[in-house]
Design a binder for these strands. Sequence first.
DNA 1: TGAGACGCTGTTTTT
DNA 2: CAGCGTCTCA
Length: 743
Amino acid sequence: MQPTLFPMEPQSKPQPARSASQISRKALNEAQYEAVTTVSGPVLVIAGAGSGKTRTLVYRLAHLVEQGVPPEQILLLTFTRKAAQEMLHRASLLLDDSCRRVMGGTFHATANLLLRRYCRHLGYAANFTIIDQSDAEGIVNLLKSSLNLGGENKRFPSKRVVISILSKSVNKGLGIEELVEAEYGHFHDFADDLQTIALHYKRFKLEHSLMDYDDLLVNWRRILEEFPEVHTELANRFSHIMVDEYQDTNPIQAAIVRLMAAKHNNVMVVGDDSQSIYSFRGADFRNIMEFPSLFPDTRLIRLEENYRSTQKILDLTNAIIEKAQEKYTKTLFTNITGGEKPVVYGARDEATQARYVAEKIVALHKAGEPLDEMAVLFRSGFHSYKLELELTHRQIEFDKRGGLKLNELAHNKDVISYLRVVANPHDHLSWNRLLLQLDKVGPKTAQNILSRVKSAEDPLAALREYPAGKTWKEGLADLLEMLEALRQSGMSMGQMFERIMDYYEPIFERLYHDDYPRRRRDLDEFGRVMGGYVELQSFLDDASLDPPQAGALEPDGGKRLVLSTIHSAKGLEWDTVFIINLAEGRFPSAQAVLPAHREEERRLLYVAATRARKQLYLVYPQEVMSYDSSAAAGGPSPFLQELPHALTQSPSPAAWQSQSSAYGGGQEERPDYSIPPLKSASSASPSGSSSAPSIKLGNRVRHPFFGEGVVEKVVSPKSLEVLFARHGKKTLHLDYAKLELVQ
DNA sequence: TGAGACGCTGTTTTT
DNA sequence: CAGCGTCTCA
């Protein structure tokens, strides 16, 4: 996360082609070669998982430059900034450093750079602040109270839902009313209020020079659509455009691509409809299929040979996607033979699952597998907590990706707010946060102060004149003094951090008195990241657009195991992949009830499983505890149950012996539970296998966690559907669940 | 009007 | 378990 502004400036003269490399021909298969060398006109590449998509993009990049296309005229849009940099790096190895001058990054980061330059056309000052989702939610909160909405009504959508509705409305180009009717029927009564909030939200952002993620895209499109001279300038500037992960773009991004390519029409997009996993961000996998209608005479190229996984893994992933309701046929094949069938393992609970995975990793590592060639993937950030404990105990180093970001921690947000106010004094969202930190200042006072300085040219100066209450006069003066000091240029980012901490430290300790020592470490880490920047604005931009992972110090070169959400694992691959918590209620996520959402969850599993080169483990706990240690869910995910049995194997009992757990080893083992794979090996807990007397339809049964229930359905000789009084309907497998008949 | 205590609820994924 | 809203007291 170094400051990486991509050069926008001079266009260099065409580079003479370096030695005509035959690189491409040999290193590429026929379809890849065609994709690399088709440099004019629109091209759509449907690239199956592991089909050498990145390789193709990298070679094409090098090929273009080699053909004499000035790197500055190439625009590479990727899903993460890291992906762009990785590709530019690899292209520069193939050819030379000129590849580095290609303009590349995410849609959002590129929008940011362009808008800093052109946003004045839209009435925005160039020092606008980019806000993240929680900032956006903060605005909704402010509006809710100032507009007196939702107050007493408990059913009013939460700020989170409000923002997702507003965002969807923007991304899908639907009116609030329309959208609410279509997708949020239960909020029908609030459609008007939502409309009001939407209006004020928009106004608030404009008045205070704030842009959210959607604004970056929408405003990029607007300057292209509404300002022909800007459109011409930009469309002329980029002669070649490439877009990666096109299946995860939304209609706005599609429009941007169309407009940016309007002059030269040399645009290649790459993607895989089976791997579309961002519909919550407005993406629609059908977008990729519509590309040819956006660009007539599109050349369609399919990459279908998989170079990543063994046939045994591919058989399973094909089976996963085979079940998809809607799919565009694409047959993946590989020439990689051998390997093991994917392993399916039902652990008793999360602790056992963590232990199993950790022990397996240790064993594989001992057998020579480098730690960084293994990864553990999961649906949601918190799914790995137990495993993190286990790994920490065993001193296995890991990197966690996805989940909490450094800039999402409240105390780091505080620090960001000071800087934001310096960069953009009209940012009332940040002002509000800072004012609330003053002792004796609450929401009312903060609003009063802000409404008075609203129209001031220089809010800082205006505040100094403000008739402060005597209880908080001093606090305000200190704050202003600190901000004034930051505003004087000449301070390095490191010095700014020091100055902020001088002021903030006592406030910080008061605010977070229970655990400020722990939080202090995050702040120091944050300060170090900040110290790496030269420019305040680029630090703030990156803090929103490319936030560093919490707890992940910059890589020290040591090889580490990777823990990652599936979303953050997109595009990556490892020898060995564990997918954990593949359990009912967790994956697919319990929230995914609509068919379309469940379909996306299935694609998510597909993405996860196709990350594996040699070995794949699918693991789930029989019981999942929720935070208050009641049973919440558990048992194999429906996705697992529908997979053909022949494609997977159970772990051999000898493969891992239950040693004393690193944590909770002494915990009373609940005698009712046997560890499934060991059960047949008779080492199961004593009373475990005595369960499952013949249970019939209509019987009352007792389950150790779910309590009492009635058998509703006998699915198979070994599995039942039981309706529990307190936990609803569960499907239980008699080999795993200990059920007692209740007389 | 602000601060702090208490009790209820709901819990993805990311730019 | 945190992040709400609600309630009470200063």
